[in-house]
Simulated scan of single mutants.
Amino acid sequence: MPYPISGSCQCGGVKYTLLSAPNLIAACHCKACQKLSTSAFSLTAMVDANTIEFEGEMQEWSRSSDSGNVSSAKFCPTCGNRIYHFNPAEPEKIKLKPSNLSDTSIIQPTVHIWVSEKQDWFQIPENVTVFDRQF
């Protein structure tokens, strides 16, 4: 996949350019991510903050996570589409929501986390790393 690759929220009010490949792509099966995605899991591309450029206004929402860290989310104030998550204590690490990329062919999760909370009907593919909780 040639980079850069672009992405945007549903309404186009927030746009971004991913300059290089993600460090990791994970599928999270925790109950919070099931609520976020309205599906069995949420996808996250771990990227370094200096490898992504954002354009447009975003709002922020934060909550405490099971680890005791803060999980903050940036989202479009118009359509509500989540763009990324981050821990304010580690602003150099971006947890991009990659389903809003213009080319989603890069989305190949190699790690599945919080499988202790996964939906029974979902079968995790072979040859991926699995964690019962957070990694």
Rank of each mutant, 00 (worst) to 15 (best):
Q108H: 11
S6K: 13
R133P: 03
A32V: 10
V47A: 10
P109W: 09
C28V: 05
L43S: 03
T78Q: 12
C11I: 11
S64I: 09
I83A: 04
N87K: 09
P77F: 13
D66I: 05
P77S: 14
P98D: 02
R82Y: 14
T78H: 08
N127K: 12
M1S: 10
K118V: 08
C11Y: 07
F131H: 12
C28D: 03
T17E: 15
S72L: 11
G80W: 11
I5Q: 09
G68N: 11
V47P: 05
G7H: 01
M58Y: 14
E92Q: 11
L24I: 15
P91G: 04
E90M: 12
W121V: 06
D48N: 13
D66T: 10
L43G: 01
S37E: 05
E126W: 00
N23H: 05
S116M: 01
S71D: 13
N50C: 15
V70N: 01
P98M: 01
S67Q: 13
D48S: 13
F135S: 10
F131M: 06
D120E: 00
Q34G: 14
S42M: 05
S105H: 05
A27V: 02
E53Q: 12
I124H: 04
W61V: 15
S8I: 02
M58D: 12
V14C: 00
V70Q: 08
H29Q: 08
Q134M: 00
P98G: 00
S72E: 06
L96V: 03
N127Q: 11
H29T: 04
S99N: 02
V111G: 03
H85R: 06
Y3N: 06
F75Y: 05
N127W: 04
R133T: 12
N87Y: 06
S37I: 06
I83D: 01
E53R: 11
A26S: 13
Q59K: 15
A32T: 14
G7R: 01
S116H: 10
I5C: 07
C76V: 11
E126C: 05
T51G: 07
S99E: 01
V130P: 13
Q134V: 03
F135W: 00
H29I: 04
A49I: 09
V70F: 00
E57Q: 15
I5E: 04
E53A: 09
V130E: 15
I106C: 02
I5G: 03
C79W: 04
E55W: 14
Y16T: 06
Q108W: 03
A45P: 04
F54R: 14
A45H: 02
T51F: 07
F86N: 07
H112V: 14
K74V: 01
C33F: 08
E90L: 13
P88T: 10
P2W: 02
C30G: 15
F135L: 06
L43I: 01
M58N: 15
K95S: 08
